[in-house]
Design a protein around this nucleic acid. Structure first.
Lengths: 340, 340
DNA sequence: TCAGGCATCCAAAGCGCTTTGAAGTGATTC
DNA sequence: GAATCACTTCAAAGCGCTTTGGATGCCTGA
């Protein structure tokens, strides 16, 4: 049952039926009732593909999600970001189209996203510092927005990011204020822009306190529980172990906690732990009394806001670039205390 | 630059240009070269919307992901499932379209998925026991496959599921074999089909060992770290605390571990913990020596297989229903030991 | 010489919608 | 009585591709 068929049965033109169903004003109320009744009776549902071609808009937003072949990991925060963005999309009648693209894949692998007309806009996740996707998309002349930034990219582009540097700088200063002098950093992979910025924040805080960085205290790798565990073990085994840790993710922090427990160390007393907390829904840090002292910023809220910004950008292609920098907040939890 | 424009410049018909670009045999090699060269030169990319309308296939698979308003959670395993499915889709030229649908939303909220022509097939996630989506989709007459099952639904449908009952039954028996008699169950929400089946497995194992179930030892709720923590605390505070726990997820198991540590209890010695492990990429349980004794089954592999089954179903709409039941494997880790 | 076959290419008809521009009603106004 | 207007409705032209059902020319073999 398509529009032509339906309009024939109603003895009306396709125009009228289409307008009746889409709520246009120039159609008699009585006619509209007849039409909607018939549509329901014959179980008519418009073909979205045809509509999409006729209107020139696909009402769909693409998400490009990198995932590394190496560790077969999708970024931890992704599910919550999507949940936030999905909420906004639903409100505006958009749907969401995903492409998981391996690190090593060609840019041409953005099938279903970069294809002309497949989506009305694109959100880019977890950019690397010199992410080639950004120039590629700018060239494609399609609205897009980056969650995060790519410091080495010179093309202008829209983005929303957390002030990662300031966040970790603040967190590290908190540990310094507690008297810690040897602070371990367990970071994400530093080709990722956010990881680089977090390291910068860590270094800035040390430097402000007049402490020389020690490369033995800085690790970067996948943000998984076992990596946090491993890195902690190794640092604690050194001759001059750290008295505190800064973790780039609450997931790595879980690994730190496990390593400390195994050695009978009490978190917040013997060793302090501070982490960046994206407020992942199934790993909440506790509202009133956080388990981990953390700088936190809701990735779900970021998803919502990115969706809003992109939709706005699609609606008004005139003023192009928009950027937003969010500050993370420090919340003191049970995992930090004065340097013993 | 569209097909017509391009064919004009080449002094060829649209037919020939289209065929040249899509690799049909009935076009001169020389002409094909000219065409591909011109396509590259003018940066021609076919409009996917038009193709989709002309071919009648959207080359896109929809995923319906429920998420509960209540706890604002997207199922933990979702990201890895998607990563697996996405791999297969990429191989077959499909893209992936997501709809996050709130529990309380009407079925009509499946915009962009149930819309006619938007997708060629659908994967349904985390079905409830009487999930209304299944009958709805069967009615829509579109290929779909359920990851999991819905016991109370009578309409036949395709599915892939883990044998949740047997898995937890096996796990529970392992604890019983170690001498445990009071075993706590920390389950997911039991309107979810898998949670119900896991409870069934737990009860079956107890019953086989001649142990009467104790409702004080059975909890169900969101599969988050804090819930695991809370449930454990409460059970340990009872007059007759359990000596072992069965957790429905590795995430709840993390909460159990935290609660035990807080009380100075050693996991695997004082209290045993067994969990169901979906092999989430950033919470791996350890290959050689698992942290948790667990019944495990890869949700990423499930994603891959679901994608394969659905694509096959789309290609051969004739033999309709296909089902697959996977067995989870028990792997002994460090978290279980003889009842003290 | 001509039928038949092969290799290329093409015109045109969709796919199922939206939207433009125009036209058909009565009712109202001058 | 003609002109104007608001309200409805419609025919038809796209949107940009794929695909059907021929054409066209050239070569082969009888």
């Amino acid at each position: 049952m398509n529009l032509r068929e339906l309009s024939k049965r109603l003895n009306l033109s396709q125009t009228t039926v289409s307008r009746a169903l889409n709520g246009y004003p120039e159609v008699n109320e009585e006619t509209r009732k007849r039409v909607t009744a018939a549509a329901a009776e014959f179980n008519y549902r418009p073909n979205i593909r045809a509509r999409t071609l006729a209107t020139g808009r696909s009402m769909s937003i693409g998400h490009i999600i990198p995932f590394s072949k190496q560790n077969e990991m999708v970024n931890i925060v992704f599910a919550d970001f999507i949940a936030g963005a999905g909420e906004i999309y639903a409100q505006h009648g958009y749907s969401m189209s995903l492409s998981l693209v391996r690190d090593e894949d060609e840019l041409s692998a953005y099938r279903g996203v970069a294809d002309k007309g497949a989506v009305d806009g694109i959100i880019v996740h977890s950019p690397a510092r010199d992410d080639p996707r950004i120039a590629f998309l700018a060239d494609l002349d399609i609205p897009f927005l980056v969650h995060g930034r790519a410091s080495e990219v010179t093309t202008p582009y829209s983005w929303l990011d957390v002030n990662n540097k300031r966040a970790i700088e603040t967190g590290t200063r908190h540990l310094l204020d507690l008297g810690h002098r040897r602070i371990g950093l367990i970071n994400g992979e530093e080709r990722m822009d956010f990881a680089q910025r977090r390291r910068d924040g860590y270094l800035a805080a040390l430097s402000a306190a007049g402490i020389a960085p020690d490369s033995a205290l800085m690790r970067s790798g996948e943000m998984s529980e076992p990596y946090g565990h491993l890195a902690t073990q190794e640092m604690l085994d050194s001759a001059t172990p750290p008295t505190a840790f800064v973790a780039s993710s609450i997931v790595s922090a879980l690994g730190i906690r496990r390593a400390l427990h195994e050695r009978g160390l009490v978190m917040g007393r013997d060793i302090s732990v501070l982490c960046f907390d994206d407020e992942i829904s199934y790993l909440p840090n506790g509202k009133t009394r956080p388990v981990f002292t953390a700088v936190h910023s809701s990735v779900r809220a970021a998803g919502r806001r990115c969706a809003e910004l992109l939709i706005d950008q699609i609606a008004h292609p005139d003023h192009k670039i928009r950027t937003e920098l969010w500050d993370a907040e420090l919340a003191i939890g049970a995992s930090t205390g004065p340097c013993p």
